[in-house]
Amino acid sequence: MTTRTATARYEGFGKEGKGQISSASGVLDATPYSFNTRFGDEKGTNPEELVAAAHAGCFTMALSFALARAGFNEGSLETTAAVKLDSDGEGGFSITRSDLTLKANVPGISEEQFEALAKGAEANCPVSKLLKAEITLTFELA
């Protein structure tokens, strides 16, 4: 149906290397990434941050569409995704979980209906399906 692309370039290797990530849309344009943006405080991005942004965005959009299909047309959704990178014990790393935290304001919806729609969106958003990590969802409905 659709294909999106991004490019990563890395010069030098290991902790001393420096990279840049660009997306076809231009939203990311030679955005720096490196060991220090991943594990330190250097300005730039890292793969886990990008996965978190993708998961938060995908889930929130999926829930928005589910709410619209259920007849709700006003309100707001704000999701934070916390993606955890752990050592895999074999000298490498694995993304082990993505914790979604949702703040929602949907006038007229019951907590039971909202929970069902939110859980459906979490299970069925394409990024959730892509991740093999544990995914949790907590929400606050105002």
Rank of each mutant, 00 (worst) to 15 (best):
E49Q: 14
E48T: 09
S94Q: 11
S25A: 13
E140K: 15
E78Q: 12
S64W: 03
T101F: 10
T37G: 05
V127G: 06
T60E: 08
L102K: 00
N124H: 12
L117M: 09
V51G: 02
A116Q: 15
I21E: 01
K129Q: 12
L131A: 04
D86N: 14
F72V: 02
Y10T: 14
R97P: 00
I135D: 04
A81G: 11
P47R: 06
E115N: 08
E78R: 11
V127D: 03
A123T: 12
E140F: 06
G120V: 12
P47I: 07
R97M: 05
R69D: 15
S87K: 14
T79E: 06
L141V: 07
S128H: 09
P126E: 03
G44A: 05
N73I: 03
T5Q: 14
P32A: 05
I21Q: 02
E16S: 11
T37Y: 02
I109D: 05
G57P: 09
E16A: 15
L102M: 01
T79K: 12
N105H: 13
R9C: 11
E42I: 03
A81Y: 08
V106P: 11
M1P: 03
A6R: 01
R69M: 15
P107G: 08
T96Q: 01
V51T: 12
P107N: 06
T136F: 00
T80D: 12
E16W: 00
T136I: 00
G17I: 07
T5Y: 09
T60A: 13
A24V: 10
L102V: 07
A104D: 06
T79P: 10
G12T: 08
A82Q: 09
E49R: 05
A116F: 13
K103M: 06
N73H: 13
F59N: 00
S87D: 13
K15D: 06
G17K: 00
C58K: 01
G89A: 07
S94E: 07
S110V: 09
S87Q: 11
T31D: 04
D99E: 09
V83F: 04
S64I: 01
G14Q: 10
L130S: 15
G120Y: 14
T7P: 02
T80E: 14
G44K: 02
L137E: 07
G57N: 04
Y10V: 14
V83L: 08
T60M: 10
R9T: 15
K15H: 05
E90C: 06
A56V: 07
Q113T: 14
N46W: 02
M61F: 08
G57R: 06
A8D: 02
S22K: 04
L28V: 07
C125F: 03
T45I: 05
K43P: 11
E122H: 15
S22A: 05
F13D: 06
S76R: 15
E90A: 15
E90N: 15
S23K: 08
D88E: 09
E42Q: 09
Q113M: 08
D88Q: 11
A70E: 13
Q113V: 14
S98A: 11
T79M: 10
K15W: 01
V106I: 15
L130T: 15
E11G: 10
I135T: 11
G12P: 04
E42H: 01
E122M: 14
L100H: 04
G44S: 05
T80N: 11
T2E: 08
S87H: 10
G19S: 01
D99V: 00
G19Q: 00
L100W: 01
